[in-house]
Computed example of a mutant assay.
Amino acid sequence: MSNSKGSLPPRRPGAQQSGRVQPAKSTASGKAAKKKAKKRSPFARMVRTLLMILLVAVIAVLAYMGYLYYKFEQGGFGVDQPVQEEQLASSKPLTMLLLGTDNRPEHPSNLTDVIMVASLNPVTKSATVVSLPRDTYVELSGYKKTKINAFYSRFKGKEDESGILAEDEMKTMMSKYLDVKVDYVTVLDFQGFRDIVDELGGVDVNISADMCYTDSVDGTDINLKKGPAQLDGDEALDYVRYRKSNCSPKTEASDDFDRNKRQNEVLNSLVGQMQSLGGVLKIGKVLDAVDNNMKTDIESAQIKSLIATYWEISKENVEFVPVTGTWRSPYVYINDEELETARKSLQNRIAGVN
């Protein structure tokens, strides 16, 4: 009788082995068991992948913050002057004036289409932004009665005679008008605005109505459709500038108050864009883009402090206070109660009062 394994009858389940042990089979089973034990679940693999992505993101952000720090240290952005510790944005509330001029290559001008004043408080991590219509009639002691958007241009024309920068004159005038001390001023032209939006990959808005207007003289060609939209730099500029229609059929006209609402909407959306990871990684390009289209008296050290202090400010903690009034051509006569509310809102933000 043959003694080969092939001639043996099959072993009954659970039957005890007799004779020699079969180590090869046991070893193979052990390896399979170990291999099975080491196999990761889909959840574990997903967690590992997410951790790797997070690590890469953190490294990228830190590297970019290092680049920005280097850029500021080299005096590549902002005013190269020291700032005392107690004057930094991290230590005290600040109020800033933002002017948007309609200056662009195809239409040189120093009229200010955008006039905003923002007060920021580092303790409450909050801000108040007051928007004023460009056609606001200003009657202020010591100044000629005129539209608010004409002051910067007038001051510019008198710089050589007065020896005072137009930006400083605007800070003084707006401090008096709103009864708050304006610490800094930034002037951004149309091209700078376009570049910011484009470098951030566009801006998300909800267009309330169709907008159509053309002007062959300065190259304006506005054609926006109602509904949610992501706008590039040119389209975003069209969106905040639109006032009236000369198309056929005509689209609904828009006044200064509507323009201010749209300016606030775009600014709010840009805040969200900047706070995203993609926005963080694009800061350098944004700064480079506006460098030739912006004037500011904010020191480099102060800019670093502003970024560190308010980078994660919640959009819910940014209060927008548009000021309205009555349009009687060619002026907007501001509602006195609304103007006083705006002043009080800025003052309360500085004082840390809700």
Rank of each mutant, 00 (worst) to 15 (best):
P105A: 11
V21C: 11
G19K: 00
T324N: 15
V185L: 07
I164F: 01
V185S: 08
D113N: 07
A253N: 15
L120Q: 02
G227N: 01
G201V: 06
D297P: 02
G30Y: 13
R243H: 02
T326D: 15
N206Y: 10
L54R: 12
N149V: 09
D258W: 05
D135T: 09
M46A: 14
D168V: 06
Q275E: 05
N223R: 09
G325H: 00
I53F: 03
A150M: 06
S131I: 01
T341S: 13
V266F: 01
L306W: 03
L8T: 14
V56L: 10
K176T: 11
A28D: 13
L200A: 00
E139A: 12
L94G: 07
D102Y: 00
V83I: 08
K36N: 15
Q81K: 14
G142V: 03
S248K: 11
K250E: 12
Q263D: 04
E337W: 04
N103Q: 09
K38F: 08
V79S: 00
E159K: 01
L98Y: 07
R11H: 09
L277D: 09
G233E: 00
A32V: 12
N223V: 05
G284L: 01
I222L: 02
P322R: 00
R48S: 14
E316F: 07
A209Y: 11
P108S: 06
I53A: 04
V130D: 01
K344D: 14
D215M: 05
S141F: 10
A236K: 01
F77K: 00
F190H: 04
R20W: 08
R343N: 08
G325C: 02
K261F: 10
T49I: 14
S2E: 10
S7P: 14
S126M: 04
V323W: 02
R48W: 09
L120A: 04
R154L: 13
V332A: 07
D215V: 09
T214E: 11
L237D: 10
V58T: 09
N149S: 08
D255V: 08
S109C: 04
Y137S: 10
N317S: 09
T309H: 02
K92L: 06
D297C: 03
K36W: 09
Y177S: 09
F320T: 13
D256P: 02
G284R: 02
N121D: 01
F190P: 06
V290S: 08
W311S: 14
R262M: 06
Q87I: 06
V286R: 04
